[in-house]
Design a protein around this nucleic acid. Sequence first.
DNA 1: CGCGGCTTTGATGTTCATCAAGTAAAGTGG
DNA 2: CCACTTTACTTGATGAACATCAAAGCCGCG
Lengths: 228, 228
Amino acid sequence: MDQQCSCEKCELKQLFFENVTENEMMSLCQNRIEKSYSIGEKIITEGNEITQFIYLKSGLVKLYRHTEDGKEQIMTIAKPFDFVSILSVFSDLKYNYSVKALEESVTCNIPIAEVKGLIRKNGRFATSIIEKMSAVSDKVIIEMLEIRRRNLRGRLALILLYFSNVIFKSNSFDLPISRKEIAEYIGMTTENVIRTLTEFRKDGILKIYGKTIEITDKKRLKLISRLG
Amino acid sequence: MDQQCSCEKCELKQLFFENVTENEMMSLCQNRIEKSYSIGEKIITEGNEITQFIYLKSGLVKLYRHTEDGKEQIMTIAKPFDFVSILSVFSDLKYNYSVKALEESVTCNIPIAEVKGLIRKNGRFATSIIEKMSAVSDKVIIEMLEIRRRNLRGRLALILLYFSNVIFKSNSFDLPISRKEIAEYIGMTTENVIRTLTEFRKDGILKIYGKTIEITDKKRLKLISRLG
DNA sequence: CGCGGCTTTGATGTTCATCAAGTAAAGTGG
DNA sequence: CCACTTTACTTGATGAACATCAAAGCCGCG
């Protein structure tokens, strides 16, 4: 095995492991497993035991859960640096949500005991994990409140802007989720997602080619997102 | 000053400070301030700087925030052990929500730097904080998803059961919040909260005397909560 | 090439917000 | 303590927003 651990070069090292000693890093590096997932593959299954601390190195994923009546609710869509396996990882023995890849994704998996040990031994590491957790749950909660307070047009406008500004950083992008999933994400029906998209198209706000969206009147979309 | 720190007797000590040494505890104890709040008093104001780590010793509080259009959204209702000042405390410099007392409440306030120091020095403490944080954000997120997936009747039934089973542990209790606040909590209008309450009363599910609620047909209320 | 899931549009009815208007309760200052 | 103001509560009427149901075209995949 190399003296130089391959994690040293990982662009996500600074995110969580900035304050980890060389020895600790070596141990992490030897115990970690990288996994690749193709579109639609499940990364985490609701109800399964939590054994790994998982974070997203690249790609895009959705966090979702099943309701009693068999439907799905999407909690959030996470990209790298947004954290995957943070919610409930430290408070529960089992996952109470599932995670699925929306794009080709790569995760880094570390045995949870290893991470817990590191938290106990290394205060700076503990601090950075706590800060990260705090930021992530905050983000999810605020996002959910922002969705809730809008009507359908506002909700759809909001997430289109989210894809455009935050995820893809472009006015033209391929929707990473189906119409049905958009509905599950923002709490409306598939039919109304489609109808509202069509409205936006007719109003000259969007161009739509299947999954490809081009935002042509962003100012107007922002207005709808603010006023509903 | 006493040798014996008064925090030693605090029933909440075990919750966060179980793993803290005697010296650390003395320091905490000297720097902490207990504060009392009467009904309606503000404990935390949105936008203010975060300087204290605040937890609820007794009482009941609401966490809420203002939307752009001047309305209020209640994020959750917290009781002791449910944590108050956990969301965003470690990731942000300012609060992005407010907290108000719904009942006579007492908080214990510790300078945030003190807690951060403790996290760095004491791994077991860091672990217990992380577990607590994880559990709290999980609770809030699941709660919000559960509210969202229901129709009005289901939402109202859900929170009535929440008050009855979780908060007051009785079929008869005084609502700690106004009709308007219920509306802000579960995302509906005040008028419809009232109308639905009246419906429940007419259906023989509840008795209502102002703020006092008595659940007379819990089985039925549970059914409504499940099926909407 | 046929099956199942996704997408689309239309018709219909329910659910819910909004507006209006009045009563009750609770806080406020003289 | 009473008049006054404000805030909370309540009911009804109306229309808009939204879900549901139905039917058909499309697409990818075994």
